[in-house]
Design a protein around this nucleic acid. Structure first.
Lengths: 202, 202
DNA sequence: GCTTTGTGATTGAACGTTCAATCAACTCCT
DNA sequence: AGGAGTTGATTGAACGTTCAATCACAAAGC
């Protein structure tokens, strides 16, 4: 029940997951091997098979734990200020000053997402992951409407739009050299929110 | 110089590229092997090494040709009706009735994009690919402003926003089971365009 | 308290397979 | 005759996975 099992793994099973994510960040899924995972933690590589079914089982389990952790961290408790909360959720993936470690881990998540195209287990995970995110986002927007800080809008639509923009930004940040576009897009998202979501438009 | 070298490859080199893309659509990059490419066209697998340097050389060359073809097809000639053109560009990735073949090929493109995280050659390609797209998009928006059909806005920002949304939609469509969100997001994009880009708001 | 039995964690070596890449030989065209 | 295109076989390395064998330790029996 540690707060961040990747940085402070407790027990062998969590050590394996942490080593897996580290290896993933460094080498990517295409070059992920059991040997490399084994190198990343201080026990034998073959021990992995004692605790998990195999390579994809380990990766999937890592994703599952990450989702669970993310869920409890950012979706915890009631949202009192919907507008500020939404503002922050959108700002994070569009922040140029994000630290390298966080940037890499987001890229890794996106890379694993590509697996969902041909692997049903991954597809199922990310389908659920999006649903969890979208539902919570829609709830926050609903709350904002009730508070009167958001105008009449389709909460599910706005939630979907926000997720889509975040996903798109993550893709480009992870796979493109340039960062020039980020500021402009952030402004544009701001315009969208002000004109289509927030109540008091200027 | 065929119009669509994937559907009608001329010569062995193009046959290899077409077979490569077919194999990618069927098996994905992670399970792409020279043998499988060889199975997909009617000559020997080892012939690939005669024409190309290796696996990634073939894939990169395929991407390059695809980009070139896409560029000449959709960015050809002047745009007379910027609004209709933009409308269509945005609608395509958000169209549920798209045929399976096209859907798969977009997913494949996105999957290859994930390679850009850890492979500089892919990264360079997609950086350029985005730039090409963004520049042309910005030009169209500039043209719309001059024609008076678009309002005062930042062309580069709008272009970036549109690309971001398209990328995000592609990601989710390729890696999620559900399609429910598409309609809602399409409406939301429409709202954005009407309130932030098109001149005559209702 | 001491021995026996049992259990889960851990290891290093090994197996079988897959893969990218090479190579010598053959064909066809000119 | 000679070069470009093509082939099937082959090689060596890498990989996922299995397995027999230890090790630490706790519970059970006496």
């Amino acid at each position: 029940m540690s707060r961040d099992f990747l940085e402070d793994p407790s027990g062998t099973r969590e050590e394996i997951l942490a080593a897996t994510f580290d290896t993933l960040m460094e080498h990517g899924y295409a070059d992920l091997t059991i040997d490399k995972i084994g190198d990343e933690f201080d026990k034998s590589q073959s021990l992995i098979y004692h605790h998990y079914d195999g390579k994809d089982d380990v990766v999937l389990e890592t994703l599952e734990r990450l989702l669970e952790e993310h869920r409890t961290e950012t979706f915890d408790g009631d949202i009192e200020e919907p507008r500020e909360w939404l503002e922050e959720v959108v700002a994070r993936p569009l922040d140029e000053t994000i630290d390298e470690q966080k940037r890499k881990s987001l890229a890794t998540l996106f890379e694993l997402r590509a697996r969902a195209i041909h692997d049903d287990d991954y597809r199922e995970h990310f389908t659920r992951s999006d649903e969890v995110f979208e539902e919570f986002l829609a709830d926050v927007i609903e709350e904002g409407k009730e508070q009167g800080v958001f105008r009449a809008c389709n909460p599910v639509g706005v939630a979907g739009m926000v997720i889509t923009v975040i996903n798109g930004a993550l893709v480009r940040r992870s796979t493109s050299e340039s960062d020039d576009w980020i500021g402009d897009v952030r402004d544009e998202v701001q315009s969208y929110l002000e004109k289509c979501v927030y109540a008091n438009d200027s």
